[in-house]
Write a protein that binds this DNA or RNA. Structure first.
Length: 598
RNA sequence: GGGGCCGUAGCUCAAUUGGUUAGAGCAUCGGACUGUCGAUCCGAAGGUUGAGGGUUCGAGUCCCUUCGGCCUCGCCA
């Protein structure tokens, strides 16, 4: 076999005259009858081979047979391309290899789609033939970027004394949170392991064990419906530190993120990353993951709306709801049908029953007022107050939603993001980071009539609110923080509870009985009793970080072998039925018989 | 579980109000060609319109069911 001396991307003019050998896949061939050109591709690039019968008839004969995606090795001399024959599109475009010896290492069927075709190939076909798809330079670049980013993370933490410690994949189900993936135990019939939703308790136990600083790039599993940026199986950068407060965790980790952005994109992230409180985020952006690349903040006008003549507004406020909205700069260019059909349907997805609108107009005398839409329900003075509150200008459109606070905020948050994009209110190439802090410790779950952790049940309240746990749990703030970039949450963490009494108290408030707590978290509670240091940490979604770095909005683009929306791997066809004998060994019987030859 | 979009040749798409034998580009196969580089030129082959049912003289097109993909609401401590 011809052994390669160089890869397909590295030869330059300075290599002219060298005897070299390369190997790779045939990207394309141009057969001129006598002279044959072959573009050979590997992970590193593309190089042009020339087969000239005057150099070797054997090699030329072989090249006549070669087809796209065949695996080919070739040896020959590097020579400069003639004047005007360079190809500026290739890094190796100044040279070519005059082949004296060639060897077909393997043949290939005609690929199911053209690998470097500019046209966009159906993702289903790409996933079924992932080995072909992953030959595309763009996919190779994304996986390369992923590798490099992970290495930057590892180096960063290593330099600061963090140890990467593995935690179990087969562990214990802790109901609450997302649905678990279960693995049946053979040795203990009827019992199950759960795949980790995150190594949360293990990393806390590592702190109790005195490991001091831990990180792990680790697979996590959550059996929930996927989204464009969510996959049941995903990768976390998991971090935990002892003897720290919120500021130290945020400080180290924003430096880590800044290092990644610098080394991968050569982008400088301004440190420290600004912070916004949860309540401010909800008030101004309607969400705890605000896209701060553009302004267009939400404004509450419940007070003005309450004494309008618009029944929907007044009754909403009377019932304890709110009237809130945003002012779309230059929104006057939106047509009435854009607003009343498209945007109204859009907010309806989030439960909003309507979208009130008014255009901001200026009279000849220079007076600003509201035109059309909901304007007729407000007198001149109140119109003025609305315009003033939004800081609205002529040509803007004010859009309002009236409903219960959570519906108003959710729908307006989504509308804000959509309009920001549609009206091009920001530069798509910038990255704006923000820490969201001061989350409430609990949220009230109306369905189950109990408190629920906003973050998770191991999050510590802020010191000043400790005594409120008993009296007004709804107003207790937590030591939690989320890192948000361009409206995407890429990480979240907290300082943890390290005191067993506080932990018990929190379980109590979450309506987890002593027995339940013992059954689910007993191992952890016992660990807490043996000298747990104050500790805190964070976890980042590596896949989402890579998406941002790679500039794609699809998580499947940054995972080598992803699953579809129905949790299927189109390459392997997993999940699939198993042999009866396997089930028997596991003492399992399925309720639904496996589908027979559909 | 709900809502939306989509499914036509290997790939990307087209096909008038329901109307003849479902077309094009690329890929494939054969031929020609010594400087191409998404080679070019000539020729050929390629289809159960995702599947099933219905309406109709006639269905890629309309209706129902179903399968699959994507987006999304719910869900994601």
């Amino acid at each position: 076999m011809i052994k390669r001396t160089h890869n397909c991307g590295e030869l330059r003019l300075s290599d002219v005259g060298k005897d070299v050998a390369v190997a790779g896949w045939v990207r394309s061939y141009r057969d001129h009858g006598n002279l044959i050109f072959v573009d050979l591709r590997d992970r590193y690039g593309i190089v042009q081979l020339v087969f000239d019968p005057e150099i070797s008839t054997a090699a030329h004969d072989l090249a006549e047979k070669v087809r796209c995606e065949w695996v080919l090795a070739s040896a020959g001399k590097v020579r400069p391309r003639g004047e005007g024959l360079e190809n500026p599109k290739l890094a190796t475009g100044q040279i070519e290899i005059a082949v004296s010896e060639a060897e077909i290492l393997n043949v290939a069927k005609t690929p199911p789609f053209e690998i470097e075709a500019a046209q966009k190939v159906n993702e289903e076909i790409r996933l079924c033939n992932r080995y072909i798809d992953l030959r595309r330079p763009v996919m190779q670049a994304r996986l390369g970027l992923r590798h490099k980013a992970a290495k930057v993370v590892r180096d960063f933490f290593d330099e600061r004394g963090f140890w990467e410690i593995e935690t179990p994949m087969l562990s214990k189900s802790t109901p609450e949170g997302a649905r678990d993936y279960l693995v049946p135990s053979r040795l203990q019939a009827g019992s199950f392991y759960a795949l980790p939703q995150s190594p949360q308790l293990f990393k806390q136990i590592l702190m109790i064990s005195g490991m001091d600083r831990y990180f792990q790039i680790v697979r996590c599993f959550r059996d929930e419906d996927p989204r464009a940026d969510r996959q049941a199986e995903f990768t976390q950068i998991d971090v935990e530190m002892s003897f720290v407060d919120c500021d130290e965790v945020m400080d180290v980790n924003e430096r880590m993120i800044a290092r990644v952005w610098k080394e991968i994109l050569d982008v400088d992230v301004a440190l420290p990353v600004p912070r916004i409180s949860y309540s401010q985020a909800i008030a101004q952006y309607g969400t705890d993951r605000p896209d701060v690349r553009f302004d267009m903040k939400l404004k509450d006008i419940s007070d003005i709306a309450a004494d309008s003549s618009f029944g929907v507004f007044t009754s909403t406020v009377e019932k304890g709801g709110i009237v809130k909205g945003l002012c779309a700069p230059g929104g006057a260019k939106l047509s009435r049908s854009d607003i009343e059909k498209t945007l109204t349907a859009f907010v309806a997805d989030y439960g909003a029953k309507g979208l009130a609108w008014a255009k901001v107009v200026k009279s000849d005398a220079g007076e600003m007022s509201l035109g059309s839409g909901f304007a007729k329900f407000f007198d001149t003075a109140r119109q003025g107050r609305i315009i003033e509150r939004f800081g609205a200008a002529q040509g803007d459109v004010i859009l309002l939603v009236a409903d219960k606070a959570d519906i108003v905020n959710k729908s307006l948050a989504a509308l804000r993001v959509r309009l920001g994009r549609d009206l091009k209110l920001y530069d798509e190439n910038r990255f704006d980071f923000v820490w969201v802090v001061e989350f409430p410790l609990f949220e009230w779950d109306e369905d189950q009539k109990r408190y629920d952790s906003l973050h998770h049940p191991f999050t510590s309240p802020i010191q000043a609110d400790m005594n409120k746990l008993q009296t007004e749990p709804a107003n207790v703030k937590s030591q939690a923080y989320d890192l948000v970039v361009n409206g995407s949450e890429i990480g979240g963490g907290s300082v943890r509870i390290h005191n067993i009494e506080t932990q018990r108290k929190v379980f109590e408030l979450l309506n987890i009985s002593k027995d339940q707590a013992e059954e689910r978290f007993g191992f952890f509670l016992r660990a807490l009793e043996y000298g747990a240091p104050p500790h805190g940490g964070i976890a980042f979604g590596l896949d989402r970080i890579i998406m941002l770095l790679a500039g794609t909005d699809n998580i499947r683009d940054v995972i080598a072998f992803p699953k579809t929306q129905r949790g299927q791997c189109l390459l392997t066809d997993a999940p699939a039925p198993v042999d009866k004998s396997q089930l028997e060994e596991l003492n399992l019987r399925t309720k639904i018989p496996p589908a027979a030859g559909e």
